[in-house]
Each structure stands twice: as C-alpha cells, then as structure tokens.
C-alpha cells in the first residue's frame, strides 16, 4: 500500500479530533477528503506531515512507518503539503518561496529544470518571480502555495483547500492544474468543500465524520446532492 493509516487518534489537549481513522491509498490516484468544518481534515494532514503527533495509531508510507518521524524527515520521504490559508513566506519573493520549497534538495540543475516545468503550469507566476509574495493577489498566492509544494518533488501531495476564495474561472484552472500534477505521476489527497470541483477530480472519496472515515466511495458512486446531505446535514 502507498499510504496506509491505521487507527489514528489525534487530540488537542483534551479535545479528541481523530478517533481511529483508518484508510488506505493507492499510488497514482486523486483522493478527495470531505467532511464538515471542524471535522478534523486539516488535523489529519498535520498528522501525516509530522506536525502533530498522534496519540495512538500508525501511518505507513510505502511500507515505512512515518508517524514517529519529524516533519522535515517526512518531506524527505516524498510527502509534501500545501497547507490551508495561503501560508506563504510573505516577505520573501516568489522565487525565494519556490527555493524554500526545494530546501532539502541539493541537485541545483534539476531544481532549476523542475522550476521551469512548474512555471509552465503556473504562467502567472513566471512573470512575478521577483515580486514579494505578500504583494500577490489572493489567487496568485494560492497558486504559489501549490507551486511551492511541488518544488520538493513529492510522490504524495496533500492539498488543503487549494481553491479557497478563488473565482469560478480560477477554480477551473486549479482543477486542470491538479489533473496535470496527477498525470505527471504524483498521488494526491485533496481537501475540498467545493463538491463540484472535488467530485469532478476524485478517483476515490473519503468522508470524515465524528472522527473516523465513515465512507469510502468511488467518485461517481454518489451524486453531489447525496454527498452534501451526508457531509453537511449528517444524513
């Protein structure tokens, strides 16, 4: 199994958020993680990335146990995350942000080549390499968060609400970008409240509910309305 989570428990002090999440993900798929606000989706990403220590349970990536590793070691193993909320290094330029994305890599020439490829996916950013990232528009910042996460050359990419706050045109663009990234061989887990976007891309859909994965389904198994009812109305 590519990524395997077994009985994962994560708490914030006394608040139990994840209460035994188990899930398996195969190489090459786009997996969409759904769940109501506050259901613990971002928490799950933080646990996978080693930002939060699980209270119980295990996470395996390509059959190696990673839940005891530090965050930087997990990036080194090939897992990158584009966190929610446009967390850029806002007083650094676009170029420097991308450079930080490639922090663990030393192959200068390959980094340069990869950056060129990534810029082909994000033409708006190519023209702004020298701009301080805090001065980019919201949409451009969102693009940069994704672009930066690709710079570590990940095998598994965790995208936390990459289309948040984007206009419909840009949402479609992000959908195309995600498809393109996936076609280049990167496995994806996507957190997305926009069901049209999420279900449009998903090979598999996981629904997080009451701290566990309540549903695993093919992207086409249920309609948007059925999902919406399940996630947001608890039906």
């Amino acid at each position: 199994m590519f990524l395997s989570i077994k009985n994962l428990h994560v708490n914030y002090e006394s608040l139990e958020v994840l209460k035994g999440v188990s899930l398996d993900i195969e190489k090459g798929d786009i997996n969409v993680l759904l769940g109501a606000n506050g259901s613990g989706k971002s928490t799950m990403f933080k646990a996978i990335s080693g930002i939060l220590r699980p209270a119980k349970g295990e996470i395996f990536f390509q059959d190696t146990k990673i839940n005891k590793l530090q965050a930087h070691a997990i990036v080194k193993k090939g897992i990158a995350q584009a966190p929610e909320g446009k967390r850029l290094f806002i007083d650094m330029t676009v170029e420097e942000n991308l450079e930080m994305g490639a922090y663990l890599r030393t192959d200068k020439r390959e980094i340069e080549a990869d950056r060129e490829d990534i810029m082909d996916r994000f033409p708006v950013l190519r023209k702004k390499l020298k701009v301080i990232s805090g001065n980019l528009s919201g949409g451009e910042q969102q693009m940069l968060v994704i672009a930066r996460s690709l710079m570590s050359k990940p095998q598994l990419l965790l995208l936390d609400e990459p289309a948040q706050g984007l206009s419909p045109v840009l949402v479609d663009e992000v959908a195309d970008i995600i498809t393109g990234i996936n076609q280049s061989g990167i496995t994806i887990i996507l957190i997305e409240h926009n069901l049209r976007l999420g279900l449009g891309l998903a090979h598999w859909v996981f629904v997080l509910e009451s701290g566990v994965i309540a549903t695993k389904a093919k992207g086409t198994d249920m309609s948007e309305v059925e999902y919406a009812k399940k996630i947001y109305l608890g039906g």
Binding site: I51, H72, A80, P83, R87, F89, M100, Y103, S152
Partner: peptide, 8 residues
C-alpha cells in the same frame, strides 16, 4: 509551520 512543511 510552513517552513517545517518545506523540510526545514
């Protein structure tokens, strides 16, 4: 936090 996610 973001810098940890970059592998720093």
């Amino acid at each position: 936090l973001a810098s940890k996610l970059m592998g720093i």
